[in-house]
C-alpha cells in the first residue's frame, strides 16, 4: 500500500504562536486565551477584506514579539485565507518581507501550512536555527460577502449551517530542538462525499477526515487511545457525530478523545452558531489558544491535528458541483 505518513527525521519544534479574534470569538469559551481581540471586528481597517489580512499581520507580529524575533530571522512564510486568490495573506503579510508561499486549502489551510512548513524545516535540519512561519486567517464578514449573501441581508440559517470564525493563528517553527514538535505528517486525499449543499459543510468534510484517520491508524499501527486528543478542524456538531459513527463502524473508536475546533471555539448554548464554528481561522485559533498551550503545559503529550477543508467556489456550488472534502493531518508531540 502507498505510504501516506511521512515521519520527519528531524522534527521541527514550535518556537512561538499567537491567535487573534473578533467579538464573537472573544465571547466564546476560549476568549481569554486570545492574544488580541477586536470587538468591532474591523481591526482598524476600512473593509472586511483588509481586516482579514490585518488579522494575519497582527497574529504574526504577536508571535514574533513573544519569541523576541525579527521578521528577517524567518526564512519562509506559508500562509492562506478564505478570500479569492488568497489576497488577504498577500496584502496583510507583504510588509514583513519574508519569502512567501501562498496556500489554499479552504478550512484545512492551517494544517496544510504547518505540514508544508514542518517538511520544509525538517529538510534543513543540518543547518542550525532555520525558522519559518505559518499564518492562517478567516473573517466572517469577508466570507459571508464572498460565499453567501450581503451581510445586512435578512435570512435564516438552517441548523446544519456553520459560522465562519473571525480569527487568525500564526505559528513560528524552528529546526532546533524544542519541547513541542511536529513529528509526523500525512496529507489528505480529495474525498467526494457527493454533497452539494453548501449549508452542510460538516457533512461534506467528514468523509475526508474519516479517510485520513483510517489511513493513519492502519499505516501507523496505533490505536486512537494512544493519543491524548484527536483534534479535527471544523466538522461542527453534525460532522462530529458523522465522523464518530463512521469511524466506529470501521472499528475505530475516537469518542473518548476526539475534539473538534468548531465545537470548542464557540459556546453553542449562548451563541447562535448552529452546527459550530468553521473557516480556516477556526482550527488555527483553537490550536494556538487551546491545544498548543495544553501541550506546552504538559497537559497533553501526543496529539493528532487535522483541519478539514471543503473545496468549492461560489460558481461550483451554484453549478451544482459536489463539495469535495480534504483533511491533512499532523502529529504534534511533547518531548
Amino acid at each position: 500500500m502507498r505510504q501516506r505518513i511521512r515521519y520527519l527525521s528531524s522534527p521541527p519544534s514550535f518556537v512561538s504562536f499567537a491567535a487573534v479574534g473578533g467579538r464573537e470569538e472573544g465571547q466564546g469559551p476560549l476568549g481569554p486565551c486570545f492574544d488580541h481581540l477586536d470587538p468591532s471586528d474591523r481591526f482598524g481597517q476600512t473593509s472586511w477584506e483588509r481586516a482579514e489580512g490585518e488579522m494575519g499581520r497582527i497574529a504574526l507580529n504577536f508571535a514574533l514579539k513573544k519569541a523576541s524575533l525579527s521578521p528577517q530571522q524567518l526564512s519562509v512564510l506559508f500562509a492562506g485565507d478564505l478570500q479569492n486568490q488568497c489576497v488577504a495573506s498577500s496584502g496583510g503579510l507583504y510588509s514583513f518581507g519574508i519569502p512567501y508561499i501562498g496556500l489554499y486549502g479552504a478550512c484545512s489551510t492551517c494544517t496544510e501550512g504547518l505540514l508544508s512548513l514542518s517538511v520544509w524545516l525538517s529538510e534543513q535540519a543540518d543547518r542550525q536555527d532555520v525558522m519559518g512561519a505559518a499564518v492562517t486567517t478567516s473573517h466572517n464578514c469577508a466570507a459571508e460577502r464572498q460565499f453567501r449573501q450581503p451581510i445586512e441581508y435578512g435570512g435564516q440559517r438552517p441548523p446544519s449551517a456553520q459560522w465562519t470564525a473571525t480569527a487568525a493563528g500564526a505559528f513560528i517553527l524552528g529546526s532546533r530542538e524544542g519541547d513541542v514538535r511536529i513529528t509526523e505528517v500525512c496529507p489528505g486525499k480529495i474525498v467526494d462525499g457527493e454533497i452539494s449543499d453548501a449549508t452542510n459543510m460538516g457533512a461534506a468534510m467528514a468523509p475526508a477526515a474519516v479517510d485520513t484517520l483510517l489511513t493513519y491508524m492502519q499505516q501507523s499501527g496505533r490505536a486512537p487511545s494512544s493519543f491524548d486528543a484527536i483534534v479535527t478542524g471544523d466538522l461542527g456538531a453534525v460532522g462530529t457525530s458523522l465522523l464518530q459513527e463512521m469511524l466506529l463502524e470501521e472499528g475505530i473508536d475516537v469518542r473518548q478523545n476526539h475534539l473538534d475546533c468548531g465545537n470548542l471555539l464557540f459556546d453553542s448554548e449562548r451563541q447562535d452558531v448552529h452546527s459550530g464554528g468553521s473557516g480556516c481561522g477556526c482550527s488555527a485559533s483553537v490550536l494556538a489558544t487551546h491545544i498548543l498551550p495544553a501541550l506546552m503545559r504538559a497537559e497533553m503529550k501526543d496529539v493528532l491535528f487535522l483541519s478539514t477543508g471543503a473545496l468549492m467556489s461560489t460558481s461550483s456550488v451554484q453549478q451544482g458541483e459536489h463539495i469535495f472534502g480534504i483533511a491533512p493531518l499532523i502529529r504534534i508531540q511533547r518531548f
Partner: peptide, 11 residues
C-alpha cells in the same frame, strides 16, 4: 451517505 446525513442533521 445522504440518508446517514439526514439522520445526523437536526431538523
Amino acid at each position: 451517505y445522504t440518508s446517514r446525513i439526514r439522520r445526523h442533521t437536526p431538523p
